[in-house]
Structure formats: structure tokens, C-alpha cells
């Protein structure tokens, strides 16, 4: 892989995705054995720059960097100069001047990671920008699927819920279709973005149709403010008509995986029976996250 940044999967070649997953799987098995000492980033520094709240993604990146031997600094909005009105470009230049090697950014504005990448010499990893992309989440989802099924090609993945606001759904769509999977989607019409079919998704007219024959059923987190904005009447109605439950899952292949990027609203996107069921990968996804982020960081870092 020879690219400066990882901003999304829309522009990433299938071979690069494959390379990240292969290396990620190797890290994951090492982590499972309790090995947390690696050297791919020793002598390097990394900063996580989070303009949005996040526990798991920030912690996952931090651990990934530390396991690889990097010096890691975390910056969150409340504690930073952003409150003083510094622009993203100026913040980036400042962090660049401190000789940081990698910047991991999460930001509420679509395109923010690209703006930072354009500004700085350091490698930039997009940890989620607005409604654009969240590549590390999609890569960890794909790593989880590949570990279980041995391949991505030929899988059918159903993604349910708030597609419109979901950078996770989009990054998964790009990555999965590049590796030969089929992606079906279903959600309220108010939360299906214009023209998503042209990006490779099959938009279904019911949960049952979306889930029919699926190898993986993925729920997406619904934010309460989406209800307040008038996208659906209530969380109860969302759960009833758009959530996945034991009845809906009968349409999927036997043993179909249940996935969710977290944090999950129990009984809304997925019922507890599915979240805690035998085929749920929701906890396993978390370890995949650390492993795949190690792989992303190591691949960017090795060029230097």
C-alpha cells in the first residue's frame, strides 16, 4: 500500500482492503493469545483528534497505537484550543509542527478528514467524518466477517435502520461490494439517502426482503434526535417496523451473524435476544476493531 492517508473506502482499491484485512487477522490472533507488544510504530508519535464524543473508537485507536509501540496523545474538543476558535487547518498545522507522524481525526463535518489530510504532512486516518465515511468501522466489520466465513466474496449483508446519517453503512457498502459481497438495505424512507442504489446498494421494501437469505444482519445505531427531527414518530414505532427481531431473523440464513457498530439501543435496532444470541458478533467486533486499526496504522507507518 502506498497512500498517505486513509480517508474512506470509496477510493480504496480492493487489493488494499484485502491487505489491511489479512494483516488485521494476524494481529487479532496475536491479541487473542495475549500478545500486546509490537514494534511497527516504535519511535513514532500519533495523536487522536476527536471533535465528537466517542469511547470505543478513540480507545480502540489509542490501544492500537500503543500496542504498536507509538507514543499516543489524545486531544478532545473540550480540552483543546478549538474552544478558542482555532480553525481545523490551524490546529492541523500546529500538530504537524510537533512532528506527529499520524493523526486520527473524528469530526462532525463531512470532508473534515480530507481537509486535514490536505493540510498536514502527517498521515491522516479518518475515524468518522459527518455523514461521509467511517473506514475503520467498516474494515473491522469486514474483518469479523472474513474471520468467520473465510471470505467476503459471495456474502449477503443486510443493513437495517438509519442509512441517511450512517457513515458506517456507506463505508461498509463501498468495502463489501468491492470485495464481492451483496448489500441490501432497509429503513424508513425518511432515512434512505437519495441515489444510494447508484453506489451499489439494493434498497428493499421490507425487512423480510432485506434479510432474506442474508449471511449477516447489521443494525445501525439510531439517535434520538432523529426522532425529534421528524424522521419517525417514536422509538417504539421504529423498533416495531424497522428493527430486527427473532421473527425477522428467520428469513436470514441459519446461523446468520448479528452485528452492530455500537453503542446499541437494546430493543430498538435489535432485540436483546439477538444481541445476546449465539450468532451475535457484537463483542467480537470490538477486538476486531483494535486489530484492524493496528493493521491500518502499521501499513501507513511502514512507508516512512
Amino acid at each position: 500500500m502506498n497512500q498517505k492517508d486513509i480517508l474512506g473506502l470509496y477510493d480504496m482499491e480492493a487489493a488494499v482492503i484485502d491487505e489491511i484485512l489479512t494483516r488485521g487477522l494476524a494481529y487479532k490472533s496475536e491479541l487473542k493469545r495475549g500478545n500486546k507488544v509490537f514494534h511497527a510504530l516504535s519511535g513514532k508519535s500519533m495523536v487522536t483528534l476527536f471533535y465528537e464524543n466517542s469511547t470505543r473508537t478513540r480507545c480502540s485507536f489509542e490501544l492500537a497505537g500503543k500496542f504498536l509501540g507509538a507514543q499516543v496523545v489524545n486531544i478532545s474538543v473540550a480540552a483543546s484550543s478549538v474552544q478558542k476558535g482555532e480553525t481545523l487547518v490551524d490546529t492541523g498545522k500546529t500538530l504537524d509542527a510537533m512532528q506527529n507522524d499520524v493523526m486520527v481525526i473524528r469530526h462532525p463535518a463531512s470532508g473534515a478528514a480530507r481537509l486535514l489530510a490536505k493540510t498536514v504532512r502527517a498521515h491522516v486516518i479518518n475515524a468518522g467524518d459527518g455523514m461521509n465515511e467511517h473506514p475503520s468501522q467498516a474494515l473491522l466489520d469486514m474483518l469479523t466477517m472474513r474471520e468467520h466465513f473465510g471470505k467476503i466474496s459471495g456474502l449477503k449483508v443486510a443493513i437495517l435502520g438509519d442509512i441517511y446519517h450512517s457513515r458506517v453503512a456507506k463505508s461498509n457498502l463501498y468495502g463489501l461490494t468491492k470485495l464481492g459481497a451483496q448489500v441490501t438495505m432497509f429503513g424508513p424512507r425518511t432515512l434512505i439517502p437519495a441515489g444510494i442504489e447508484k453506489l451499489g446498494a439494493k434498497i428493499c421494501s421490507s425487512r423480510e426482503e432485506a434479510v432474506d437469505g442474508a449471511d449477516v444482519v447489521m443494525g445501525l445505531r439510531i439517535q434520538l434526535e432523529r426522532q425529534k427531527a421528524g424522521n419517525f414518530p417514536s422509538l417504539g414505532e421504529f423498533a416495531k417496523y424497522y428493527g430486527a427481531n427473532e421473527e425477522v431473523i428467520k428469513y436470514a440464513k441459519p446461523g446468520a451473524l448479528i452485528m452492530h457498530p455500537g453503542p446499541v439501543n437494546r430493543g430498538v435496532e435489535l432485540t436483546s435476544a439477538l444481541i445476546d444470541g449465539d450468532t451475535s458478533k457484537i463483542e467480537d467486533q470490538v477486538l476486531s476493531g483494535v486489530a484492524v486499526r493496528m493493521s491500518m496504522l502499521a501499513l501507513l507507518g511502514k512507508e516512512d
Binding site: R167, P193, A194
Partner: peptide
């Protein structure tokens, strides 16, 4: 504009 490129970029259309 709300259309193919608002969806692709995640910018509000």
C-alpha cells in the same frame, strides 16, 4: 443539492 453527490459526500442536501 440533495442527490447523488450529497449521498456520496455525506453533505446535507
Amino acid at each position: 443539492h440533495e442527490g447523488d453527490y450529497s449521498t456520496l459526500t455525506g453533505l446535507k442536501g
